Simulated scan of single mutants.
Amino acid sequence: MRLTYWTGFWIFLFDQVTKYIVLYQVNLPAQPNQTYEVFAPLLTLRMAWNRGVNFGLFADFDMRWALIAVALIISAFVLWWIRRENAGRWAHISAGLLVGGAIGNVVDRVLHGAVADFLNVSCCGINNPYAFNVADISIFVGAIGLVLFTDGGNKKKTA
């Protein structure tokens, strides 16, 4: 479990540091429609406040506290489940990625009322209108890792 907690801690810290830099050092929110090319044309900083769920779905509804509660409940469940699961190293890392990212986005919702998304990846003439952050990447990779590196309760029973 220590690996899960440390992974979650470092992901949370990295997420919050990147958000701090973009929000307060680069000051991206103060410049509407402003973008910064980091690795043109692949990676661009473009500010977006996500008040909803993935891709801004349900952003018109005030779901701030409900989304905070859901993230905390899922995080607690993942920690409980990974503790009970006879999981290996990669499953514990995956759980830490998911929980660290979820808590990073919870902090955004508490402090700002929305999640700060700012990473935009476009390629090959396709303009991606969506932005995301380090926490979003961690949640996605952690969820995929939990699917791949745990048996999901499908342990084979021996006679």
Rank of each mutant, 00 (worst) to 15 (best):
G56L: 04
A91L: 01
I74L: 08
L119P: 08
S122T: 06
G96W: 02
M63F: 15
C124V: 05
L43W: 06
A116M: 11
N105H: 03
F77R: 10
L43V: 06
P129N: 02
L57N: 09
A91K: 00
W81N: 09
L57Y: 08
A59D: 14
A48L: 11
A69C: 14
W90H: 11
L42F: 15
W81K: 10
V115I: 04
A116Y: 13
R84M: 14
Y130M: 11
I74N: 02
L42P: 09
F61S: 14
I93G: 00
I68F: 13
N120I: 02
A69V: 14
W81I: 05
N120L: 03
G125R: 09
V110W: 14
A91I: 01
W90G: 09
V110Q: 06
F61D: 14
A48V: 11
N50P: 04
A95Q: 00
I73S: 08
G125H: 10
H112I: 05
R46S: 14
N50Y: 09
G100S: 00
A102S: 07
S75V: 10
L119F: 14
A116P: 10
R109C: 10
F118I: 02
M47Y: 15
D117A: 04
Y130L: 12
R109M: 12
G56T: 02
L67K: 10
F55Y: 15
G101V: 00
G113Y: 06
N50D: 07
G96S: 04
V53L: 10
C124S: 09
V106C: 08
N54P: 05
A69S: 15
R89P: 05
G52F: 07
S122C: 04
N54H: 13
M47H: 13
G113T: 06
H112C: 07
L98I: 04
M63S: 14
V115S: 03
W49G: 08
D60Y: 15
T44K: 09
R89H: 07
I126E: 09
A71M: 13
L57F: 14
T44Y: 05
H92M: 03
G88I: 06
G101W: 00
E85H: 06
A71N: 13
